[in-house]
Amino acid sequence: MSRTKPTRRSACPISYALDFFGDKWTLLVVRDLMFGGKRRYGEFLNSDEAIATNILADRLAKLENAGIIRKSADPQTRARNVYRLTDKGLDLIPVMLELVVWGAKYDPQTGAPMAFIRRYKTDRENVVKEIRDRLAKN
Rank of each mutant, 00 (worst) to 15 (best):
M1E: 01
S2F: 03
K5E: 04
K5M: 03
K5Q: 04
P6M: 07
T7A: 13
T7Q: 13
R8N: 10
R9I: 12
S10H: 06
A11M: 15
A11N: 15
C12P: 04
C12R: 07
I14T: 15
S15L: 10
S15A: 13
S15C: 14
Y16P: 03
A17V: 07
A17F: 14
L18W: 06
L18G: 04
D19A: 06
F20K: 15
F21N: 03
F21P: 05
G22P: 05
T26R: 02
T26H: 00
L27V: 13
L28H: 12
L28C: 11
V29D: 02
D32T: 06
M34L: 05
M34W: 00
G36D: 04
Y41P: 02
Y41R: 11
G42F: 06
L45P: 02
L45W: 03
S47K: 10
D48W: 09
I51T: 04
A52D: 13
A52Y: 11
T53L: 10
A57V: 02
D58I: 05
D58E: 13
A61L: 09
E64Y: 02
E64W: 01
E64F: 01
A66Y: 10
A66W: 09
G67L: 03
I68E: 02
I68D: 01
R70K: 12
K71D: 02
K71N: 03
S72N: 14
S72K: 15
A73C: 07
A73Y: 06
T77Q: 14
T77V: 14
T77E: 15
R78A: 09
R78D: 05
R78P: 06
R84L: 11
L85W: 05
T86K: 04
D91I: 01
L92W: 08
M96Q: 14
L97Y: 02
E98P: 10
E98C: 11
V101I: 15
W102L: 14
Y106E: 10
D107I: 10
D107W: 07
A112W: 06
P113N: 14
A115P: 05
I117V: 15
I117N: 07
R119F: 05
Y120C: 04
K121A: 06
T122R: 09
D123W: 05
R124S: 05
N126Q: 15
N126P: 08
V127P: 06
V127C: 08
V128M: 07
K129A: 15
E130S: 02
E130I: 01
I131T: 01
R132V: 02
R134C: 00
L135E: 00
L135T: 00
K137H: 08
K137Q: 13
